[in-house]
């Protein structure tokens, strides 16, 4: 690990927190507007059990939704490559789903499916599905043309070209998709919980918000951003392991 690269972000975050802390004390900002970071951490420490339970629940929803979105998006992309005729119709449908503001659908799903886990998973899956579909599709569609020629000169079947060439060539795109989708998964789960839930970080934030209990709310935000960053780091590490042949990460498709 490069020492300079590890400590610089830590120093930046530390500096930011220090400025925040001193500003709150210096300007005597009231607790109901902005709590100091120390107060937030203290609140977190005082309520470790409820926070960990809520975190586990939200994380479970986010991961389940992400898995569902990646699975459906990935499978659909494979199908579109294996049977190219369907692409236009399916893409129109996918863009329709993507264009619908999911924040507007979340309350409906809660109304229909209740306060349980299912509507959160569905919302998260809907949010993550589209970037996965678009990225994996473009990865599957454009392996190196010279390699496609090579396979064709061997008289390879469509299926052989798919499994031996297109699939591995699309792996870098899968990671690009995951790096866009993972943050969306957190957003999806939390937003869905805001619209009604029996637990989870979003639920805790909503309760804290209605009581103007800002330290409580910030504690949840701290957890979310820390987890989100940790997850991104994990993905980047996995990417360097799995797609070892790719010197730089592929540019993700804009969605």
């Amino acid at each position: 690990m490069n020492g300079g690269r590890t400590w610089l972000p830590v120093a930046l975050v530390g500096g930011f927190l220090a400025i925040w802390e001193s500003a709150v004390h210096l300007f005597r900002i009231p607790l109901y507007l902005l709590p100091a970071p120390s107060r937030v951490v203290w609140t977190l420490a005082q309520n470790l059990t409820p926070y960990s339970q809520a975190t586990l629940l939200t994380m479970g929803e986010a991961l389940a939704g992400l898995a569902l979105g990646v699975l459906t998006g990935g499978l659909l992309a494979c199908l579109l490559v294996l049977r190219p005729g369907a692409e236009n119709g399916v893409m129109t449908l996918a863009i329709l789903v993507k264009s619908t503001p999911l924040v507007a659908i979340a309350p409906l799903l809660t109304l229909w499916l209740g306060f349980g886990v299912l509507p959160k998973v569905i919302i998260t899956a809907l949010m993550t599905f589209f970037p996965v579909l678009v990225n994996i599709l473009s990865g599957l569609q454009r392996p190196d043309p010279a390699l496609v020629d090579l396979f064709q000169s061997w008289n390879a079947s469509r299926w052989q070209i798919f499994t031996k060439l297109r699939l591995p060539a699309s792996l870098p795109y899968l990671f690009a998709a995951l790096k866009i989708s993972a943050p969306l998964a957190w957003i999806g789960a939390v937003v869905a919980e805001w619209t009604g839930a029996s637990g989870g970080l979003g639920r805790m934030m909503w309760l804290a918000y209605t009581n103007l209990n800002l330290p409580y709310m910030f504690a949840a935000i701290f957890i979310l951003s820390t987890l989100g960053m940790g997850f991104y780091r994990l993905l980047a590490w996995l990417e360097s392991r799995v797609v070892f042949w790719q010197p730089v990460t592929v540019e993700e498709e804009r969605v």
Binding site: A146, L150, S153, L171
Partner: peptide, 15 residues
């Protein structure tokens, strides 16, 4: 499978 073609570029699978 009676024809073998070698491309002008190496065309190797990096993985």
């Amino acid at each position: 499978q009676r024809v073998a073609w070698m491309a002008q570029s190496p065309a190797l699978l990096p993985w």
